[in-house]
Each structure stands twice: as C-alpha cells, then as structure tokens.
Nucleic acid binder design. Structure first.
Lengths: 345, 345
DNA sequence: CTGAAAGCGCTTACAG
DNA sequence: CTGAAAGCGCTTACAG
C-alpha cells in the first residue's frame, strides 16, 4: 500500500518523510545527505530526487523567525563598489527575512576547500558569488547538497550552467565612447580594468566599435589595462597626459580610476573638462560629488545584486529560473567632466 | 557523592552536564535556557551560574569547521565608512574562523523585537553593534542567553555596562582646530555631525577648547550641525561661504562632508587651500584622492572594529575584559587642503 | 549495500 | 515548582 506524499511546503520534509517516500530507511537517507560512499548509485539517485522535490533542509526544530541565510562571497572588498552590492542584496533579504553571511576571498577568484566545508555544514539557502566563481568539483558538491549558486558579474567566460547576473559591458563601452566622439574628440584614451577580466575586454570592444562606426582609428598606445583602483587611474592618467601627443579625452574603467585621472590632470594643471574630458564607469554615489562631477556609465550594481538575490531565493524555494544569464542595461550619465575638445578638428 | 566537574572547554558542556553539576533535571535546565517562568528563582540562578561557568552553547553536533558566527549590526550602511568597519571585523573573524552575519537597522538606533528573536534562535557567539545600541530589556535578554555584546562608537551617553570601542572625538576636534589656528586662521567654521549624537558634541567641545587656548572667540554663527553625508557638507558649505564675512577655514565632521564643502568652494570659484582651508574627519581611503587631497583627522575605523571584534570573541570564550570602554587615538593627517589664510592678521 | 537499534542533545506535555 | 517519560530529527557503529 502506497501512501500519497503531497509536498507540504519547501523545507517541511524530514529525512523520515523522504525515507518513507522512497521506501528506504532513514539511515540510508542520512548517508546520502552526508555524502557517504556506501550507497548504491541507483538508491542515491532516487533519494536525491526526493530530497530535491521536497526542497529538503536540515531541521533546527524551532526556528520561528528567520527563513534561513545566504552566503554572500566577495572576491575582495572594494569600498564603494562592494557596498552597493551589499545594499542591493540587503534590500531583498530584509523583506524576505533572510540573513546574510558575509565573506571575502582576499583577492582569490576561487574559494578554498575550507570555505566549501563551512558552507556544507552551514547549509545556507544559497550562495551568492560576487566577481568570483567555483571550480567544477565545488559546484557539483554544492549541487549535490541542493545549495543553489548565483554569480554577480563574471571574471571570465564560464560555460558552466551557473545562473549569472551582469550588465552589458560592451554597450557601456560603446555609449561612453560615442558620447566622447559626438563631442568631437578624436584622440581618446581607454583605461580599462585588468586585461584577463572579461568585462574589461567587452568594454574595450565597445570602445573599438564606436570608433569603427565613425571611421576614427584607435591609437593602440592610448589603450591601457590595469586594476580598477584609484592608483591605476592616476598612474595611467599621468603617463597618458604627459605623452607628446596627449589624448583630449580619457575613458576610465571605473569611477575610482576616473578620480585618479582627475587628480593627475589637476596636478598637471589641465582643466577638466576644458582641456581634458574624463568619463568614468559604475556611477557610484561619489561620482556626483567629485570636482568636477563625473560623467559616467551607470552600472546598476544594486539592481544587479537585488536581481541575483531574488534568483537565489527563487532557486532555494524550488522555483525554476526562466533564464540563467541576465544582463542589466548600462546607461550614460552626463555630468560636468566631459565637453567638446579645446581644439576640435 | 559529588562528582567533580572540570570545565573541559568553552562550549563543550551539554545541558546534561549542567543538570548533573547543579543537581537538577535536564528538563529544568532546558526551561531556564528557554526563559520559561516555571522555575524557582533560586534554581534558575544556580543553573545560570553553571551555564555561564561552562560557556554553554547549543550543540549542533557536527560542526568541525566554523567556530561559530557573530552578528554585525549597523545603524545603517554608509559606503566607505561602513566598509572600513567591515574590513576591520573581517580581518579578525577570518583568522579566528568565525562567520559574520551582516544586518542593518535602516536608520534606527535600536533594533526591533523581531531582530532580537532572530538573534536568540541563531545564538551567535556575540553581537557587534555599530552606531546603535540595545534597550535595557533587550540587553538583559541577551545577557540571560549568554550572548555577549560589544558596541563600536556610541550615539549617546549610555551608562549601561556594555563594552564599547570608540575613538577620542574631543581630541580629534582639538587637533583639527589647533592645526587651523596654527596656520593663522581666525574665522573657522565647524560643520559637525547631528546635534543629538555625542561624538558631534565632543568634537565641537574640542573645537571650542582649541579656540579658548589661544583666546580666539568662536562665532556661534559659524557652528553648524547636520548629517555626516556629502549633501550636508555641501549645503552648509554653500551657506557659510556666501556669508558676508565668510570663514577662511572649515572643519567638517566627516570626509564626505568635506567633499561637499570642496564642491561648494569650487562652484563659488574659491581656491582650496589658497582662499579656503578645508579639513575633514575619518581619513577614509578616498580622502587621499580628492582634489585637492584632504587634510583630515584619522579615526582608526578598522582598528576600532578589529579591537571590538577581538573583545567580543574574548567574551565569547569566557575571557574577562580588562576594560569595558576603549577609545583609540585620533591623529592629524596633513595633505593639501589646508594652508595659511590669504590675509592673515 | 542496507537498515534495525542504540544513542545524542534537546524539548514538551503532563503527573505530582 | 520539579522531573520522569515520551518524543523529535538526526547520526553512527555494526550485523547481515
């Protein structure tokens, strides 16, 4: 006699429920959950299917408040940028009554094994990775334990089926460059992010495309790659602006880099925007308060983080995702740091 | 026959251990832990004493990785400022293998009851409050459950015996003002933080004291209070700088406010530091990159957060604290935004 | 490879 | 006010 096993709600099943449904002992279910090897592949598969169906989660008995927690993992902390992400995440988790566990990888792009062990014992609702990713074995391990993963932005072209939220970097590069070209600039420098990061290349491609559109050649000497921080903008800015034939405009890879360029220009006595146009990227809150205020590309970091968090919570609730890759739109924000060049052709 | 009960280590005791030692049933211990009312005051006291002695913590059985987690609670998120705190906390928790649960009160200075319920079910190693505090009943409730609390900075004079880490605000106000007076300024404006926040008043007092030292009167019209954000600095800066007898120097309550002042000066065509000296407060990373770079007071936010975290972990481990109030030292950092006044007396 | 049995830490009616 | 007893969700030797 088979009982019916209606799904009462995500997380309501115990291992007894699962055992009952699959027709095995609680011992066996426990073994599957703990990754023991002494379970037949077939049995394991049936148990895992049932666990998934029920969105099984380890009970802590009394947890009237708190719908669970998610792991928010940064590649590293980066003042204003990371805070925008945190705010976007928090806006969603606060209303969903979900807690946020914060960590960073200290600059690495792949978490180490101890981190994964921690996640497996914590069993969070899900893991949100920012500018970092998992190795394939790590990803499989989390998948086996039914811990969903979503990535914000991506540092390289990963073909793994990990849901990812980013923004249209190519379009951002295009919009920024078109803006400068339309103002009449013909010698435009690009300071992008690190060369091995995909978004840097995407923006550079948009930069190139905008030039091609109007038939203006790109001087390879004016294209630089570097870290997203202020000092890279300052360093490259200094170099570019002391070139014999210096550019009349600089497109920086981040607002922080743009601040470095602004400072280099100031030290060289160049007036922005009269003698040099500067455009940033990100549209951090501080971009409105630099002197002069930065023209920049709005990358909707809060929205990106919020969207990713919502996707993660949906996955945790067993709701399927319509798309596994979402790119939010980038937009040009014109402020005071761009103007026609002093001597347009 | 009494058995001896050596303390095997913090967190190693179960309720059975406690029951055994006190000579009551596990039921009774469980009741005490859950705040039931049907326990004699005397019994409750003895059980609580034993729990405290053993640093009892709810067992989750298998938790080989992860020494536990702490709750990090912000009054609200404030880009660069909050990130400095987070970094300071993270530096300590990462080496101690402790997880950080992040939340914010959305601007409130006292958490609501749902938050406390969450903490009580989570049972973290401790709670770190940043620019916020608990009500007395909330504090007692956490104390009863052996969850230690440490506060970073304080928004008002609280006499509650809560360990607190701050910095010497009065001294910061003094150092900044002395610097300006020594440069020869005699009309110095103060834009402090919110008037109802103690640190704003402490800095204002240091400002006043520095004037008194050299017998220079403070013009009350030049003393303003406002939020710590950029726009308050901009607003007050605009007002002050369009005064008939405008100040030759402005001491802002935060680097963010100082950026607002810098912008106001720029819009009015005033050269900093030639026609106006500006000094900030906090020494956020961005202060080195404004144009001109900000002279400021270094408030060691990372150290403050790190110290507070260490105190919290010590308390969680049952180590007594030598002091319950630590103020770290503030220092003057001279950069480019201050200089002698254009027309010194 | 499987599961009955013992056990763990804890909580909750309920009898006194 | 107290605690014996039943029970919960889960894990772990260990016998087959």
């Amino acid at each position: 006699m088979t009982k019916s096993h209606p799904i009462a709600g995500p997380g309501s099943a115990t291992i007894a429920t699962i055992a009952d449904e699959v027709g095995v002992s609680v011992t066996t279910v426990s073994k599957v959950l703990n990754g023991r090897s002494d379970v037949a592949a077939d049995t394991r598969a049936r148990v895992e299917a049932s666990l998934e169906r029920h969105r099984y989660r380890r009970r802590s008995k009394r947890q009237p408040t708190g719908a669970g927690q998610i792991d928010l993992v940064f590649h590293e902390f980066n003042a204003a940028w990371s805070m925008e992400i945190i705010r976007g995440v928090e806006a969603v988790t606060a209303t969903a009554n979900v807690d946020v566990l914060l960590s960073q990888l200290g600059g690495d792009h792949r978490p180490a094994q101890p981190w994964l062990d921690g996640v497996l014992t914590r069993r969070p609702l899900g893991v949100l990775l920012v500018l970092c990713n998992l190795t394939e074995p790590q990803h499989q391990q989390l998948q086996r334990q039914l811990v969903p993963v979503v990535v914000v932005d991506t540092d390289s072209a990963t073909s793994a089926p990990v849901p990812t939220v980013g923004s249209n970097n190519w379009n951002g590069g295009l919009l920024a460059t078109r803006h400068l070209l339309e103002l009449g600039h013909r010698r435009i420098a690009l300071i992008s992010g690190p060369e091995d990061v995909l978004c840097s290349r995407a923006r550079a491609a948009g930069f190139q495309f905008a030039h091609d559109e109007v038939g203006v050649p790109v001087d390879p000497d004016l294209v630089r790659y570097g870290s997203f921080y202020v000092d890279a903008g300052y360093g490259h800015g200094m170099e570019l602006l002391t070139l014999p034939d210096r550019p009349t405009a600089i497109f920086a890879g981040s607002d922080m880099q743009a601040m470095g360029v602004l400072r280099a220009a100031w030290q060289l006595g160049l007036n922005v925007p009269r003698e040099l146009s500067v455009i940033g990227y990100d549209n951090l809150p501080v971009a409105a308060w630099t002197v002069p205020a930065l023209t920049t590309i709005n990358q909707p970091l809060r929205d990106m983080a919020g969207t990713a968090t919502q996707m993660l919570l949906d996955l945790a609730r067993g709701v399927g995702l319509s798309t596994s890759r979402v790119d939010l739109v980038t937009e040009l924000v014109v402020r005071e740091s761009t103007a026609p060049p002093a001597h347009p052709r």
